[in-house]
């Protein structure tokens, strides 16, 4: 594959920076510079108009659509040799999607990687926002399957574009109405539609609605890339993001009503794990870095033991 290989093995290996202009098979971070320039222009436009879906010429990536090709292209366009990359998939650093994308950038960009949220400068995420608060200077890149929040109500692209441009968002509430009519409450639990700066309605990618409040007034830059649908949108730091709701059915960020069984956290978003055939189950933090950090600090949950590593 690439001419340089770097021993980036989950540890920060700063200073080992690949020279960019060499006779190598792949350009830094896989994409050629022209493509990156095109993506960066789209990113800048997205940041200038928060929540607006900017079309871009999405490239074929060496992975299937649905595996994060949009996020990967945005990450590739943002990476510099000094960056420290973290990749998470549903909050976890060690699942297939996260591992393969991290390896991809280790090989093609040679950047340092980390699992620590606080150390990372670029975080590519699939369907979660880290529990730890992000800070200024960090970039959070989301993988987006379907960027159009109105899509399942209005199949015509020409019509949804017009609805965005004329701010006709009544249809979004029809979806929430249907939820309440059928389930007695707003049952949408992920990809919960939001309104950005009082203007564009945006699909926040399939993050749980528990994470929606973290979209708003976030110090980090948030970039959204949809590879198959060829759209990029963005939230600059400290943007107002409001989850849509009804006056008599206000938005509620929900999570499983348990504490983490490993680290005892009451506030983190939880995954439910079946542990035997007798109906036994445990709840663990979906954010693995947050959970292991807490356990390293001595927090122990119902089923955890101090400092034990549970896969």
């Amino acid at each position: 594959m690439s001419a340089q290989t770097h021993p980036a093995s989950g540890q920060i290996a700063q200073g080992q920076i690949a020279p960019i202009h060499t006779d190598q098979a792949y350009n830094f971070a896989y994409l050629d510079e022209e493509t990156k320039r095109m993506i960066r222009r789209a990113l800048l436009k997205g940041l200038a108009v928060p929540g607006y879906q900017v079309p871009f010429a999405s490239r074929e990536m060496p992975m299937p659509y649905g595996w994060g090709t949009g996020g990967v292209q945005v990450t590739a366009a943002c990476l510099t040799p000094d960056d420290v990359l973290k990749v998470i998939d549903q909050g976890a650093d060690d699942t297939t999607n996260a591992v393969s994308i991290r390896k991809f950038f280790q090989r093609t960009a040679g950047v340092a990687t980390t699992e620590q949220t606080t150390v990372a400068t670029v975080i590519q995420t699939r369907h979660r926002i880290p529990e730890t608060d992000l800070s200024e200077g960090q970039i959070l890149v989301y993988q987006v399957p379907i960027p159009e929040p109105l899509r399942f109500l209005e199949p015509r692209e020409t019509e949804t574009r017009k609805m965005h441009s004329l701010e006709e968002y009544g249809l979004m509430h029809v979806r929430l109405y249907e939820d309440i009519a059928r389930h007695g409450q707003i049952a949408t639990s992920y990809a919960y539609p939001v309104k950005v700066e009082g203007r564009y309605v945006m699909d926040p990618s399939p993050i749980p609605k528990f994470d929606n409040p973290k979209l708003s007034q976030n110090a980090a830059i948030q970039l959204f890339g949809a590879g198959r649908e060829q759209r990029i949108y963005a939230l600059p730091p400290y943007t107002d993001v409001v989850s849509l709701d009804f006056e008599d059915h206000p938005f509620q960020a929900s999570k499983a009503d348990h504490a983490c069984d490993l680290c005892g956290s009451n506030t983190a978003y939880l995954d439910e794990v079946i542990i035997d055939d007798a109906g036994g189950r445990m709840f663990v933090c979906s954010d693995t870095d947050y959970c292991s950090t807490r356990r390293a600090q001595g927090h122990v949950g119902r089923l955890g033991t101090a400092q034990e590593h549970v896969a």
């Binding site: 009544g170 249809l171 109405y177 006056e247």
Partner: peptide
């Protein structure tokens, strides 16, 4: 009509399109 949306949602759509945001009133 929107065939995938309930009768109530169909009637309520125009109300929501002009800014109704109270579920009980719409219903």
């Amino acid at each position: 009509l929107r065939m995938g949306v309930s009768a109530g949602g169909n009637v309520g759509e125009r109300l929501m399109a002009v800014g109704a945001r109270h579920y009980g009133n719409i219903r």
